[in-house]
Design a protein around this nucleic acid. Structure first.
Lengths: 333, 333
DNA sequence: TGTTTGGCGTAAAACGTTTTACTAGATCAA
DNA sequence: TTGATCTAGTAAAACGTTTTACGCCAAACA
């Protein structure tokens, strides 16, 4: 069965293609098409189940009603939850989301941007890696809306939505200190993105503000993308060699690996060792004992992101850049 | 800056559009374009950074190099992990994945199919809900490759990839029985899809085969999409009113809610109450005590799915339908 | 009467490709 | 020399829309 085109509808209705197009696009009134014709054409469309070819439409109009979402890894629960929320909200406004994971790989990120570009997506929501500044700049000068989230790129002048990582990290450490901890470790990753750096800075600052000297040896930077087994080994070595009474994990997957390491070492979490994870996860609530975590307000982030991009999409001129920093919450368990 | 078109390249190179197109598509040799011209054009393309407009290309050729992936919920870790694997593999073959969640809603699923159809995706990978059989049938008679996974639709005649849910469920129950359990509950959902039904059947059959009478009261069907708090209440009522020594959860999110319920009841998992979850999750490994789980071979499922769809895409005629059932593994912890 | 105006609608160009069918000249075989 | 074949390329149609500019008729106006 050949799929129907607007031409088939026009022929069947005995009117021109133009007329059908006007009706489909709700311009019938404005173009003064008679009520009778409108009814007739609409009836035929309904009966035949005709759906306009979006590809042809995109080619002609230059936009696609698609928003590209570029994230680090869809299988990470932080991103998959955000993605779901964003998809949901965009969908309600008639936009589709197409998303893809960069795996924190600059080359792949660039490719993705190109791919989206050649697919003519209308806007971009990006959780960026370092190294794609130029590509993003090209999008911007091309007048495409770009919203960064989770991580900011300071040299890029566009909208950004993210949690207050510095403060959340600071508060986490402060809470350790309030509970009498003093030998506080940080397990983080070596990827060079702003949000990770901020968490690190928050850690340092909190220590210093409370007169605890910063000690390099208590900070473990895990290589991104490295095998989990190796990660666990490194953590075990940190936890057993140093005398530590608290540890902040800078990402949830690190925290999960960390819990595994502690389990293997048979170290009990509790009075002797406190733990806080960054980015909440079901694991932490259910863990015995349950684990405190910094919870990013996913719903709010998603809402803000989508709001910003829709605003930008519907406005002809470039809106003023907004940098929205949303407080994160330390859930003490 | 206007984006470049093939015409710009042609003009710059002093050749025709056709020639450029042949070169881009690797048909230069076959169409006997001279080496000199090829070099020249390629140089210009490289230097200018020209990328063909995929929309125009799709319009002309009728295919998009996009595969549509329709799942229940991207924020469910089973799906997000599968999605990531599928995306990865497809990407390597030059295909993009565009995915969307149905939330188990027939209307949304139908809409998604339509949307994908009007976007001219080349093939479909679907974890279906009941009620979309007709729509899938339309795709098939349209000669589009469709691969079902996770859940089969028995009246649809196409490829399918999934785990052996019946057997996995059967074995789980058998393992309870071997460990001396006899009052075995099942917590499942009320969605009417094959894979859930099979898990239920496996449960019943195992009981009967071991001379344990099936008892309706030990089966709790949770309404899909219902509030987690309510779910937990229902479970608590089951766990405290009945005398139960083992429970199988038919999905991982039910198991997670179940663990929360047990925690609230202060019921210890272990000798008095054994638990098995369906679909593994990090929570289960880290839980104290750790929780046994049925592990679906994600990698293998993803690999098979992608293999089937790529085969079908590259073959002109309809391949014989394959129903691939992959064994699931009970991880006893 | 001749000229506007408004109502109703259409023809055709354009979006950026791919692909089919063709051409002009060179070489070759008989 | 003639016709066939090969080489190197091109013109133009087609994909399915949207949109601009226009056409025609009847009514209103002066």
């Amino acid at each position: 069965m050949k799929t129907l085109s607007i031409k088939d509808i026009a022929v069947k209705a005995g009117v021109s293609i133009t007329t059908v197009s006007f009706i489909i696009n709700g311009k019938a009134k404005e173009k003064s098409i008679s009520e009778a014709v409108i009814k007739k054409v609409e009836k035929i469309i309904k009966e035949s189940g005709y759906k306009p070819n979006q590809i042809a439409r995109s080619l002609r109009t230059g936009n696609s009603n698609i928003i590209g979402l570029i994230i680090e890894d869809i299988s990470n629960s932080f991103f998959s939850r955000i993605a779901r929320l964003i998809e949901d909200k965009a969908y309600k406004k008639g936009y589709k989301i197409i998303y893809s994971s960069t795996e924190n790989n600059v080359e792949k990120a660039k490719e993705l941007i190109n791919m989206f570009k050649s697919r003519k997506v209308d806007g971009y929501i990006i959780s960026p890696t370092k190294g794609i500044e130029e590509d993003i700049q090209v999008l911007l000068s091309d007048n495409k809306p770009v919203i960064l989230f989770d991580r900011n790129l300071s040299d890029i002048d566009t909208h950004y939505v993210g949690a207050d990582h510095f403060k959340a990290s600071y508060q986490s450490i402060e809470s350790f200190i309030k509970n009498g901890k003093g030998k506080i470790a940080l397990v983080t990753t070596d990827i060079d993105v702003e949000q990770i750096i901020e968490r690190f800075e928050g850690y340092k600052k909190a220590l210093i503000d409370h007169d605890i000297p910063y000690n390099d040896e208590l900070v473990l930077k895990i290589h991104f993308n490295q095998d989990e087994a190796e990660t666990i080994e490194q953590m075990k070595s940190l936890f057993s060699s140093k005398d530590i009474d608290a540890v902040l994990f800078a990402t949830n997957y690190l925290a999960i690996s960390g819990l595994k390491a502690l389990k293997q070492l048979n170290k009990k979490i509790g009075d002797e060792l406190s733990v806080i994870a960054y980015d909440d996860h079901e694991v932490f609530e259910l863990h015995t004992p349950s684990i405190s975590a910094v919870q990013q307000p996913l719903e709010e982030i998603a809402e803000t992101v989508i709001q910003l991009i829709l605003n930008q999409l519907s406005s002809k001129n470039k809106l003023e850049n907004q940098k929205v920093i949303i407080p994160a919450k330390l859930i003490e368990r």
